[in-house]
Design a protein around this nucleic acid. Sequence first.
RNA 1: GGAGAAGUACCCAAGUGGUCGAAGGGGGCAGUCUCGAAAACUGCUAGUGGGUGUAUGCCCAGCAAGGGUUCAAAUCCCUUCUUCUCCGCCA
Length: 426
Amino acid sequence: MIDPKLIEAKPEYVKEALAKKLWDFDPAPLLADFQKRRELTKKVEENKAEQNRLSKSVPQVKKEGGDVQKIFQQVKALAAENKDSETALKEVEADIQSRIEVLPNLPDPDLVGGGKENNHPIYSWGKKPTFDGFKPKDHVALAESLGLIDYERAAKISGTGTWIYTGLGAQLEWALINYFIASHLADGYTMILPPHILNEASGFTAGQFPKFKEDVFWLEGTEPKKFILPTAETALVNLHRDEVLSEDDLPKKYFAYTPCYRKEAGSYRTEERGMIRGYQFNKVEMVQYTTDTGSDAAFDELVKKAQKLLEGLGLCYQLDKLAAGDCSHSMARTYDIEVWIPSMGIFKEVSSVSNARDYQARRGMIRYKDKQGKMHFCHTLNGSGLATSRVFPALLEQLQQADGSVKIPEVLRPWMGGREILKPIR
RNA sequence: GGAGAAGUACCCAAGUGGUCGAAGGGGGCAGUCUCGAAAACUGCUAGUGGGUGUAUGCCCAGCAAGGGUUCAAAUCCCUUCUUCUCCGCCA
């Protein structure tokens, strides 16, 4: 949530910043609401104060044998008088809330405006493989010939947009997750295995609601309503919702492995084939809570951690600084780490590292007390570390050999029983 | 899923209609004492959000959350959430 005080103090600044995010914001109705709220608050509270004062005098007047009935009538009259203003005040407050909660986060000032087309790579690592002397396969073909993924039976038992990791495929998937986990543990992050079913408030705090309500799976028959998490970020940034942390506790560094469940999905026969986009994919997610001055350093750390993971696997990738309009809704800045997918001829996102600054903290009242005892909103950051569903295909495609086999990166071998290579079974 | 009990400040806890924003204790902080510490004693510490004013301040909200009753609610009523106990079911 954007700071309402900032909107009131610098409406034009907010308008321009949101324009960079391709969001057309008209501050006028909000400014009018703020004004109205101020007037109504004063009116309502002054009336209330008078009511309170009169009510408090009742025991005294009683003792002195005065006319309490008169006071009752006075207070009743005041309350009746106040009713319309109170209703109006509630309405204005609800209106302000609904106008502000839908606004995306403000982009950091250094970002270029506009959408995807204005993203620009700021770093790349590794070499695109050249596949001398043979025609490389795509990951769907590789996964099938190596016996790693079963798309057909997945369609049978679940439906399109899903897949089954089988045998060595399942082991390879799990090896990736283990490799990620080991790396985060070594860096001192706290491991979390959260519930996958979350309540609505969690989605609101993360900033997924109200905007992305249609994109998650809702459970039927749960009251209050519950949904299945689209990313572990939703769980992790809610860990300290409605809490006041101490500055000494920050930064807090967490990571979680969960599957991610989303309504968007591709088909394994279309452009985003195989496991590039599915209803369910595995991801290890990192989240940090920092002070309001500590988030830039945390951001750099998260980006480096994600990069390190791909470098350990030896996969060619690029680091992309997203234009304001392509950053996530809740985020002030986002860098994508994109791995090279040879069959698609493009870099595809495996990690998205973002700084929400105080946007999520405001929504979820996540605060900390500094050493002077002053309250601040925390900053929250998140980054994938990593999503396997893009790494797996990239790994198969980038590390495939002329004979159709695939080399297993050394860092994964401890979890693959020491195996060095995956060989075709058909 | 059923039945019952409960949710009060950093923690424990008193409080069933009227100066209760809330006794008491613990904790924390400061001081006295001490070479220092402990103990004892003394004092301070009760958050937060909002309004208003130059200001010590004053005002509104706030006792799990949201409604309601009442001149007046931590206290009575309703709904929801959470926790605990017992029963049922079960990986």
